Simulated assay, not measured.
Amino acid sequence: MAAPAREAAEAMPPPGAAPYGNFPHYARFHPPEGRVRLLPPALLGRLFPAGPAPLLGLDVGCNSGELSVALYRHLLGLQGNETCPALPVVGKDLHLLCCDIDAALIDRAERGSPFPASISYATLDVMDPGARELLFSTYLSRFRRSAFDMGFCMSVTMWIHLNHGDDGLVEFLAYLSSRCKYLLVEPQPWKCYRAAARRLRKLGRNDFDHFRSLAINGDMAERITEILTEDGAMERVCCFGSTSWDRRLLLFKSNRLAHKQL
């Protein structure tokens, strides 16, 4: 192995050493195209036929931004290497706030972003109530808004659940439902929980604090649907299908924030 390649390999954390899902090359083994191909290209126009303008999106757990950029391109109908969203196909103006707990991943996302005027990145522990409220409220106030039009929670729920337990997962989903008119969720199935715990054990590390005590388990897509729709907070609109790695894309709409029918 050449010296630069060997040094780069040594600098990478061992597989599984990402207890918050902050894998440094996540997009290599779960490519963004595997999700965006399931979404209708005219989705924004169907959800928001008459505005508002601009549309505001929130991407929680964005990693190094590859999926955020792919979602932005797909939802605005941008093709190939287009980097000018001035006249998007869907006739919508979209701004995304993307956050992740890992500062190094956020730095990489910012440096590689083709849409710096429309996609903002921020380091955030989304389970810190004060930090998230400050970030989200500050961002929304720039547009004189109190809620995001659409939230994206792509393969994040498991990491919240493993690190913060059942109560943490419920609180996290309740918060997103209070901040987003629509919410697109890609829950990890229960087999991914077992695999994540197994990876940690192989590294000789302590198990996740909550893994063996989680009462919310089994069919996680259904469990998360139950949490989000409890007390009528949100309503499941549809499932866009499953990725090749067996994760469903579920769309929910808020019953407490203004919205349009799909």
Rank of each mutant, 00 (worst) to 15 (best):
C84E: 14
R108V: 00
I101E: 01
L97V: 00
P88H: 13
P88L: 15
D107S: 14
A86F: 11
E110A: 14
L96P: 00
P85V: 04
N81Q: 15
P85K: 04
P85M: 07
E110H: 03
C84H: 14
L105W: 01
N81D: 15
A109S: 03
C84F: 13
C98N: 10
D107G: 11
P88T: 10
H95C: 10
A104H: 14
N81L: 15
G80R: 04
R108A: 07
R108E: 03
E110P: 02
D93C: 10
V89A: 09
S113C: 15
A104E: 13
V90F: 08
C84G: 06
V89Y: 11
H95W: 12
L96M: 15
E110W: 07
A103G: 02
K92V: 08
N81I: 09
L96V: 14
I106E: 02
E82N: 13
I106S: 00
C84V: 12
P85N: 07
A103R: 01
G91D: 09
V89K: 14
G91C: 08
G112P: 03
I106D: 01
D107K: 13
E82A: 14
T83R: 12
T83I: 05
A103Y: 00
R111Y: 03
L94G: 06
P114W: 10
K92W: 11
D100V: 01
D107Q: 12
R111G: 02
L94T: 07
K92T: 08
